[in-house]
Design a protein around this nucleic acid. Structure first.
Lengths: 123, 123
DNA sequence: CCAGAAGTACGAAGAAACTCGAACATATCG
DNA sequence: CGATATGTTCGAGTTTCTTCGTACTTCTGG
């Protein structure tokens, strides 16, 4: 995964109230190949699924997920998800909380998120 | 992409008439991570899109696509798509023809193929 | 101010993917 | 049979991931 697209610091949700999002690709720069590349990593797919299925209305810091991996590994994977355009990250004091960019992804690739949370048919 | 799942030589379409498919994962062994990994390569995503949008009813040999890459590279990418469960390949005399496993993919991951052929919104 | 907590940055080592040439296999056609 | 066409296999070189330790930064709470 290489970061080539242009990045911006967007301010969608109530500027002044929420911390600014970390640099991320704009909606139109989200590429399907990058999405697929990011989601081909099992841990990263799990992160997105967990956010979609178990998060309640709020963003979650990476400690919330309960992964037993070194912190630097988690940084790496969350950054990969952010740079692919899958999550938005905001700094709240010490912790950095993530949420799925649901609106952007639904607008750009309708059906993608449904695909990720659908229980795969196991006959 | 590593090949770990069990493989079988399935015989879905009129055995005796069509050549046997090359070894491929069974429908239930198709994994989302593997799909995503395969489609994160731009050329491979193009192959699937071209098959879905431009193929008329038949399988296509890799010469049909008109890629200007060494033959060994094409072999590599078609094999990756087959091992991920995205395409089925059959040997017709000299040439090896590929088609998307539409039924299997629709059954296992509804919406996936629609996602691949949807024209991404470019405002 | 200091200690602890959350996370980053850097870098290195190993694994995996990508690209491609060269040699080989096999089917078809004249 | 020999030439050609399609595609494979093998191997090497290069690049990209992945993992993780270490050191560093920054915020928060006493």
């Amino acid at each position: 995964m290489v970061m080539t697209a242009s990045f911006r610091t967007n301010t969608v949700d109530a500027p002044g109230v929420l911390p600014h999002p970390l640099p991320e690709p704009s909606r139109d720069d989200i590429a399907l190949e990058a999405i697929f590349g990011a989601l081909s990593q099992p841990l990263r797919l799990t992160i997105i699924q967990k956010l979609l299925l178990e998060s309640e209305q709020y963003d979650h810091a990476c400690g919330w997920f309960g992964f037993s991996r070194p912190k630097s590994s988690l940084t790496h994977h969350f950054k990969a998800l952010r740079e692919a355009g899958l999550i938005r990250q905001r700094q709240y004091g010490l912790e950095r909380r993530s949420r799925v960019r649901i609106e952007d992804l639904d607008a750009r690739f309708p059906g993608l998120l449904d695909l990720l949370v659908a229980r795969s048919a196991q006959p």
